[in-house]
């Protein structure tokens, strides 16, 4: 990987102190069937969503799920400069970025492979949602920045980017809601925090295990994104899918409320501006 030459890196062979912390073996659920943060297995974290946080962008949104914090901004649609990229359908440019301080280990400024892969996942999630035929020969830019990653960052990014597109007034078929899930044998945890997320480097010798992320369009009942890893059986995946869809409807009601609220505020502001001009 190319190193950032503008910064002073530590001496050669330096290791992160986090490697020397002994790993704690904690159970996902305690004796009362509660998770480490006191939630039940199928509970979501409290969600905060606000639109229009960036006055310069066409549209923007900020989402907070306890300690997972994500900002998304939308610019465009703008004309495509290079002629060979012309398409009668609109194009989306997505950038998914972790802030350098967002994770336990410092992230580099240059996009790494994980960020590039997540960017293309995000693009493929938003493409079925946006009415691309309305923007021929043009491109919409969507930038997603994870300020703090405490699990389910991709899911939060999907919801946030969807809300930012709504705020930008881009024509869409439906809003899109993201939700994550962790499967560990018979235990299913919705909306996992960082410690609960499945990591392949930990040894899982037996049973089914894995992570799932769903991007769901609640009104059209369409799956815009589906990502699973680990080791799962088709039956488990479809059972988990049902659970995720249920949670997505839960998130959807919050998002809907937030969208109507923001629209009301926008209309009020416009009314004020109009009366100002008249007087």
């Amino acid at each position: 990987m190319p190193l950032d030459g503008k910064r002073i890196c530590g001496p050669e062979g330096t290791k992160s102190p986090l490697l020397f912390i002994p790993k704690k073996q904690t159970n996902l659920l305690d004796d009362n069937r509660k998770r480490t943060d006191g939630r039940h297995a199928e509970d979501l974290r409290p969600l905060f969503l606000r639109l229009g946080i960036n006055s310069q962008a066409r549209g923007s949104a900020y989402i907070e799920m306890n300690r997972t914090k994500v900002v998304a901004t939308v610019y465009g649609p703008r004309e495509i400069q290079r002629r060979r990229e012309f398409d009668m359908k609109g194009q989306l440019l997505c950038e998914f970025k972790f802030a350098p301080f967002s994770c336990k280990v410092r992230r580099q400024y240059q996009p790494d492979n994980e960020e590039k892969a997540l960017s293309s996942v995000l693009r493929e999630t938003l493409e079925p949602v946006v009415c691309l035929h309305k923007f021929p020969k043009s491109r919409v830019d969507i930038f997603v920045l994870v300020l703090e990653n405490d699990g389910s960052a991709l899911a939060a990014a999907i919801t946030c980017a969807g809300a930012a597109l709504v705020d930008a007034g881009i024509d869409m078929y439906d809003v899109v809601i993201g939700c994550g899930l962790r499967q560990d044998e018979a235990t299913t945890l919705v909306d996992p925090v960082y410690e609960e997320e499945y990591r392949p480097e930990d040894n899982h010798q037996s049973g089914e295990h894995g992570n799932m992320v769903l991007g769901f369009m609640p009104l059209l009942q369409q799956v815009a994104a589906l990502q699973c890893d680990g080791e799962l059986q088709p039956k488990t995946v479809s059972a988990a899918l049902g659970m995720l869809m249920e949670s997505c409807y839960g998130i959807y009601s919050i998002v809907q409320e937030c969208l109507t609220e923001s629209l009301k505020n926008k209309l009020k502001k416009r009314e004020k501006d109009v009366t100002k001009v008249i007087s």
Partner: peptide, 16 residues
């Protein structure tokens, strides 16, 4: 027969 990865690609959506 276990699934180690599932991913949706392309610009379309699927019915659950």
């Amino acid at each position: 027969g276990s699934l180690t990865a599932v991913r949706k690609t392309g610009s379309g959506s699927l019915h659950p």
